[in-house]
Design a protein around this nucleic acid. Structure first.
Length: 156
DNA sequence: GCCAACGTTGGC
DNA sequence: GCCAACGTTGGC
């Protein structure tokens, strides 16, 4: 059985949760993942209805800004085959696309971002992979308890 | 801006 | 198959 809860990272300067909220259907394709471990989660384990924490990295305030739902399961990330796309990968072909994406739909923007410093101080979140030293994965499985704890911290 | 951690690449 | 060099991530 795969995970049902996830966390994805995005740099707000590239694509923020408020950008997502401005989409007509509040839905976007989650493109640009170019790491095999993260790709495997996307391709093999993310299922429709799974819930996804939306984490803002590399910009203040650092933390979980809201959450989404997976509304389409994995399909080839076509941006890998567009030569002037920042995520272009010449090894990706129609026959062997290598990289995959899912569609996510915004459910909720938190009134206040759940900050990484507060998360680190929460004993219930000590095992979160996001908080481990050297962590760089942009797609991370989250336990049900961790997911609900973060919603609590957000006042949801 | 700094730098530690990590993944990937490429020479051998 | 090893490993040094390099590029990227991302918190501080």
């Amino acid at each position: 059985m795969g995970a049902k809860y996830w966390l994805v990272k995005s740099e707000p300067s590239v694509y923020s949760i408020s950008d997502l909220s401005k989409e007509k259907t509040k839905t976007t394709y989650w493109d640009g993942v170019r790491n095999y471990q993260a790709r495997n989660f996307i391709r093999d384990d993310m299922k429709i209805g799974d819930l996804v924490l939306y984490y803002h990295s590399n910009d203040e305030p650092l933390g979980v800004a809201g959450y989404c739902e997976i509304v389409r399961e994995s399909y080839p990330d076509f941006t890998a085959q567009i030569s002037d796309n920042p995520h272009f990968d010449p090894k990706s072909t129609s026959e062997n696309p290598i990289w995959y994406m899912v569609d996510i739909k915004l459910i909720k923007i938190f009134k206040k971002v759940v900050g990484i410093a507060d998360m680190k101080e929460n004993p219930k979140l000590q095992a979160m992979r996001l908080l481990q030293r050297g962590n760089r994965l942009s797609v991370i499985p989250v336990s049900e308890q961790e997911f609900h704890e973060i919603l609590m911290m957000a006042g949801e």
